[in-house]
């Protein structure tokens, strides 16, 4: 597992440097602090959601969370509905965290108690969460997010967006430490890699996996909070496509789809790479459809490179 992570990062870093260098040559004006701010600003939601997604996938058992985008949308809507219904607005962040965690734990129950396959369970909740968010609002946004949130959501510190500095970075550091130095973190890798042995040595696989889905929901809840503070309103489709982009980021970041292998640093690197690529192409005024195609091709190519390396090693 170490050999894999150690190669993922250089590849991602190399690609990133290439994109930045290309941009510097073709569009020198893009080499400005505002570009950094923009990249990080648009990385924030994806990074948070990808962190949760990565935990779920690392935990194995065909773990996957297709409901993350729906969770972000639904939490944002729930929070603003409660806010307009008179719940004190200083509680809004708490509402987001609790609602997100609960929605994530529903997935946890479906997977660990009802023993539904994660792909099926979260495909189901994807439909339910994203559909409910649209249906109860009739599609319209709910404005009027508490004013005290906006300076945080839109503010920057030396060019770095505050939500990125105060949420994404600490959470990734914390999660990396958690995975590396705590029993819980080692369990995740252990049962992600070999579940039967993990059960035999007495690791509470189901409970840890249940928590992983809750964690993914919590991250989605945080993403919803950031979206409220940033946009100033709750959008019923704010999480649209996040399930597929977060999956792309996690796979690109070197996490094996079957769990047990990969690291979170790679995931963050992949998120930054994806958003830098999008930004670069936008700065060059390349039609956005190329983003979709290039990112798809990149995903396939990186896994192909990885595979060929593995086959050579095993051969």
């Amino acid at each position: 597992m170490s050999s894999r992570t150690s190669l993922t990062l250089p590849i991602l870093a190399g690609l990133w440097i290439l994109i930045v260098a290309g941009l510097a040559i073709l569009q020198p004006s893009a080499m400005a602090l505002s570009t950094v701010t923009t990249v990080l600003q648009f990385s924030t939601l994806l990074a948070l959601v990808s962190l949760g997604q990565a935990m779920v996938i690392l935990g194995g058992g065909a773990g996957i969370d297709l409901s993350v985008g729906g969770t972000v949308s639904l939490v944002a809507i729930i929070a603003m509905l409660l806010d307009t219904a008179g719940v004190p607005s200083f509680l809004l962040p708490v509402v987001c965290l609790v609602a997100g965690t609960l929605l994530g734990l529903v997935n946890g129950i479906l997977v660990t108690r009802l023993r539904l396959l994660p792909l099926i369970a979260t495909l189901g909740t994807f439909y339910v969460y994203s559909g409910t968010a649209l249906a109860i609002t009739g599609g319209s946004a709910i404005g009027g997010a508490p004013a005290y949130l906006l300076p945080w959501g839109r503010g920057t510190l030396a060019g770095f967006p505050l939500p990125f500095v105060t949420l994404v970075l600490p959470l990734f550091v914390l999660a990396v430490l958690l995975l590396r130095y705590t029993a819980w973190g080692r369990w995740i890798y252990a049962f992600g890699f070999n579940e039967r042995s993990a059960r035999l040595v007495g690791i509470p696989v189901d409970r840890a996996r249940f928590i992983a889905y809750g964690f993914s929901g919590l991250m989605a809840g945080l993403a919803a909070l950031v979206s409220l503070a940033w946009l100033g309103s709750a959008r019923p489709n704010i999480g649209q496509n996040l399930e597929l982009t977060s999956l792309t980021a996690v796979m690109l970041g070197g996490v094996a789809i079957f769990g047990g292998r990969g690291g979170l640093v790679g995931v963050l690197a992949a998120v930054l790479l994806l958003v830098t690529l999008q930004t670069g192409l936008l700065q060059l005024n390349v039609n956005t459809i190329w983003q979709v195609g290039i990112i798809g091709a990149l995903l396939i190519l990186v896994l192909l490179v990885d595979n060929i390396r593995m086959i050579r090693r095993t051969a």
């Binding site: 923009t38 648009f42 946009l231 959008r235 489709n237 704010i238 496509n241 999008q278 936008l282 956005t288």
Partner: peptide, 15 residues
């Protein structure tokens, strides 16, 4: 997707 649209506008501003 409003976020994608926002990203495009932001990049045009940066340019």
């Amino acid at each position: 997707n409003p976020v994608d649209q926002l990203q495009i506008v932001q990049n045009l501003i940066n340019q």
